[in-house]
């Protein structure tokens, strides 16, 4: 690193590197244009159907079978994720965003097994929320999906639940990236911790919902009944959640919020330093004015998409 450390840290004013309070450094490493936004919206709608199917399914519908529905819907969600992946990748992604995504995904993948097994402790959302905060909503969505995918691949956890988990974590990242950009300091951490808590709970509830009939079958009093009024099914679902996954959901909620509160400042500072060094985004290149002295080369940049 001799020499590199100093020279490589270009792009930011040398005195502005203290702490995380310097405004305007958060990047949009993977920009979401209008067309990609539309794709994302439709895919999310599909996701809502897939997650909420026990509440939506009508009596006598093709998918009212509790065992095969999550499999079919898992396949549908997986396909939707692949379609989104094509949308994100079409026309290329900034190579720096790919590398940062890969490395953060790896960090997330080591966070999961480190925390798994101890009831409800789930630290991966801390990284997804903070990463999305610094690198923007598009990156956050990708980070959520790739983290869950990579950790499933590494631990052999691929199953019908994986597409649901990927989409859910992607939403968590997307939402974190869309939070108000202004907040900084303690307010920012509080906002992120609060969001993290809600997101972690929501993630748990949604996954629970889509696999409720799968795991419980139809022969109990708190099972879903296809075609029942939504309110009735919701009541049974709440009872089911309370009796089964509540401790885990609460644990996930608490660990996410506490993780963001404890490690948030340092992690944000680290991520922002990286974002500054990477200098994402098309307008971040101050070169062209003097570059064009001889001839007129096209203003190609590292992020020419």
């Amino acid at each position: 690193m001799t020499g590199r450390g100093r020279e490589g840290s270009a792009g930011g004013p040398r005195n502005g590197r203290r702490g995380i309070d310097s405004p305007g450094v958060d990047a949009r490493a993977v920009p979401i244009g209008r067309r990609l936004g539309l794709t994302l919206a439709v895919a999310s709608l599909l996701g809502v159907l897939a997650f909420g199917w026990p509440l939506l399914v009508g009596e006598g519908a093709v998918l009212s079978d509790a065992t095969s529905a999550p499999l079919v819907l898992g396949l549908v969600v997986a396909a939707a994720l692949a379609v989104l992946g094509v949308g994100f990748g079409d026309g290329g992604i900034d190579v720096k965003a790919i590398a940062v995504l890969g490395l953060l995904t790896a960090i997330g993948a080591i966070l999961r097994p480190l925390a798994a097994g101890t009831g409800g402790i789930e630290t991966v959302f801390v990284l997804i929320v903070l990463g999305a905060r610094v690198f923007g909503p598009g990156f956050g969505f990708l980070l959520g999906t790739t983290t869950l995918l990579a950790s499933a691949l590494l631990t052999g956890g691929v199953g019908p639940w994986l597409p649901f988990q990927m989409l859910g974590a992607g939403w968590v990242g997307l939402g974190a990236g869309l939070l108000p950009r202004r907040a900084r300091g303690v307010g920012e951490l509080a906002m992120l911790a609060g969001y993290g808590a809600l997101a972690a709970l929501g993630f748990g509830v949604l996954l629970n919902l889509s696999f409720w009939p799968f795991l419980l079958g139809t022969a109990t009093e708190i099972s879903f009944v296809a075609g029942d009024p939504v309110a009735e099914n919701v009541r049974r679902f709440v009872l089911y959640s309370l009796t089964t996954s509540l401790p885990w959901d609460l644990g996930r909620l608490i660990t996410t919020a506490a993780g963001i509160a404890v490690a948030g400042y340092a992690v944000l500072a680290t991520l922002r330093r990286a974002a500054r060094r990477a200098a994402f985004g098309p307008p971040a290149e101050p070169v062209p004015p003097r570059l064009t002295t001889a001839g007129a080369p096209p203003p190609t940049g590292p992020a020419d998409r």
């Binding site: 990748g89 993948a109 480190l114 790739t146 983290t147 590494l154």
Partner: peptide
């Protein structure tokens, strides 16, 4: 068509054991 994203996942899967060691 998924080349870019799969590259990120390939990187992650390759690097994770090394990060474990680093921890």
């Amino acid at each position: 068509s998924l080349h870019h994203l799969s590259t990120a996942v390939v990187i992650a899967v390759t690097v994770t054991p090394q990060l474990f060691t680093a921890v």
